[in-house]
Design a binder for these strands. Structure first.
Length: 300
DNA sequence: CAAAATTCCTGACTGC
DNA sequence: TGCAGTCAGGAATTTT
């Protein structure tokens, strides 16, 4: 499942070869992926003829800035891929739902078997309209996150992006304070922390040495600082390794290359295998229908 | 108001 | 072998 590091990998690759390119035509063959629009024709009219000026990321969302000031947002969901093709005659993968044909030749394709992902064009607000930015995002200072949220009202609800937003551990502590929610639910709540999914929530908790079901308010100052550091460290390392490609999920960047952070996973998908620190078997439990992997000795 | 359950979807896997 | 049933999971929506 593409989480922050995988989406950042896609952003980085696309940023290098798409900025400055113009979209000649757009073909939508599955209307579900543009479901925020009233129809596929509306999406086509809002993308054809635009030149890509920038590609940013907030949480798990990609934000393409167009020359007319509008933004195209892409969320890959569980199984979405943005793939570059050199020519139209290159074979199209199964479940190719949108094809962007570029003026310079070549295509950008959106492929998504499960169609949990979506694309939409966001229109900038007219003067005077205020955007209600997430209160957690407002707690962060600096970085480009606030500007991105203001530019895309649909994303204003997103919480802290630990790569885009600068946030110190004191402010992070303020977010965790007075929350009885289990820590893993907090880490995966996009309105509180944007970008962590099931893989990186588990890896972060292991790195911090804290159990998934501890309530946020029960953490000591030391534990909050460890968790704050763990989120930044895990995400940064995973980005360096170009994300995680699991056996069953087929995450690849726009050039078709797999990531290799899965080789560095300490707990995720490692049920029964020895913990890297204490050699005890990694355990797996289902929490609210989701797999959670952890080491009972190293996390408490 | 918040948290839990449900829904969307297809490929991979399980068991008979 | 083949087929029905189950599982996986992000986020919006519905229910508790």
């Amino acid at each position: 499942m593409p989480e922050l590091p995988e989406v950042e990998t896609v952003r980085s690759v696309l940023s290098r070869d798409m900025v400055g390119k113009k979209i000649k035509t757009v073909a939508v063959t599955n209307g579900r992926v543009v479901r925020r629009h009233k129809n596929a024709k509306d999406f086509r009219e809002r993308t054809e003829g635009r030149t890509v000026k920038s590609i940013n990321r907030l949480g798990k969302y990609l934000i393409f800035g167009f020359d007319d000031g509008t933004k195209m947002v892409a969320h890959l969901g569980m199984s979405g891929q943005l793939l570059r093709a050199k020519a139209a005659k290159d074979p199209k993968p199964k479940h190719t739902h949108i094809v962007f044909t570029l003026n310079s030749g070549g295509e950008l394709r959106y492929v998504d078997p499960r169609t949990f992902g979506e694309l939409f064009v966001s229109t900038p607000l007219v003067d005077g309209q205020a955007v209600e930015i997430s209160k957690f995002a407002r707690l962060s200072i600096g970085g480009d996150g606030l500007a991105l949220r203001a530019a895309v009202p649909e994303l204003a609800h997103l919480g802290i992006d630990f790569i885009e937003d600068q946030i110190g551990w004191e402010r992070f502590a303020a977010i965790l304070r007075s929350r009885e929610t289990p820590l893993k639910a907090v880490l995966m709540d996009q309105d509180i922390i944007a970008g962590l999914g099931n893989i990186y929530a588990d890896e972060t908790l292991y790195n911090a040495g804290i159990l998934y079901d501890r309530s946020a308010e029960s953490l000591s100052t030391i534990e909050i600082r460890r968790l704050h550091r763990a989120i930044t460290e895990v995400l940064t390392d995973a980005i360096k390794h170009r994300g995680s490609t699991l056996d069953d999920e087929q995450f690849v960047d726009p050039e078709g290359r797999a990531g290799d952070y899965q080789n560095l996973h300490q707990v995720y998908n490692r049920e029964g295998q020895p913990c890297g620190q204490c050699r005890a078997a990694i355990l797996r439990v289902i929490v609210r229908g989701r797999s959670t992997f952890y080491c009972a000795k190293c996390q408490n």
